[in-house]
Amino acid sequence: MMQALLNGLVSGLLIALPAIALSLTYGILNFANFSIGAMITTGAYLAYLVNTTLGAPILVAAPIAAVLLALIAIVIQRGIYRQIRNADHITLLVASMGVAFVLENVIRFFFGADVRTLDVAVARPLSWNGLRLNHEQLLIVTVTLSAMALVAIVLKRTRLGRAMRAISDDPELAEVRGIERARTVDWTWAISGVLTTLAGVLIALDGIVDPLIGTNYLVSVFAAAVIGGIGNPFGAVAGALIIGIVEETSALAVSTTYRQGISFVVLALVLLLRPQGLFGFARIKR
């Protein structure tokens, strides 16, 4: 049980990164980015590419991949989402599904459906009072917590962060106050690209690289963001931890193959009982 709880926390932290990314783009662009799963996959493959073909160690490959995906995300924003006229949030949502479809199949085109692994050494797990924590999990904890701290600092302490929160709060007033929306949107996509790449690399380190690694997390990530009150990045972290723990502990009773099914049930319950998210009260609407 304790082991499941620990595993749940770790996997929750993993889900938290893309859930934050999802919440940030939702808050600022006001649409749900369904390509978030494909972005995770793309980030993992970019890291894989730099790691195995260029032979760069993963600690170098991951940041390079993160920058690449950040650039790709900005190109997609400028080339697709911004080009859609009369863009209501549903049209953008459908477009993001199209983007996911293209990204996933571009990966299939170049890499096929083969399962690959990153080029890293395997180490023995740490043991403490009967609880096991392997090095990948330790890495997940370190990287995700650092990334979250960094995002929190950006949001709370920097001009960019204030611009993001201002646009999320009231886009029209933000413009009046001198905030250039397009520039802030680009940065939001860049952050989203970095966070999803980190998640992709961590997932790949903990297992394998295949064209569906990100899509397999799509439902969990959305469930986390919705539980946290979609558009609220700090709520998304809490939502992710809840989802992670529920998924891992439920594995004691239900087959692990139903991990996504559990997320669906949690999601449906939250939507029925507390549609504004468990932490939705934190935002002032009027």
């Binding site: 201002a166 709060d169 009231d170 007033l173 001198g178």
Partner: peptide, 26 residues
Amino acid sequence: GYVPQERNVFRNLSVDENLRIGFEFI
């Protein structure tokens, strides 16, 4: 400088942050 009639402050940001935003982007 423009003060709209309604929705003229960022409600989920603090007083200080509102003031800072009024200043720093200009």
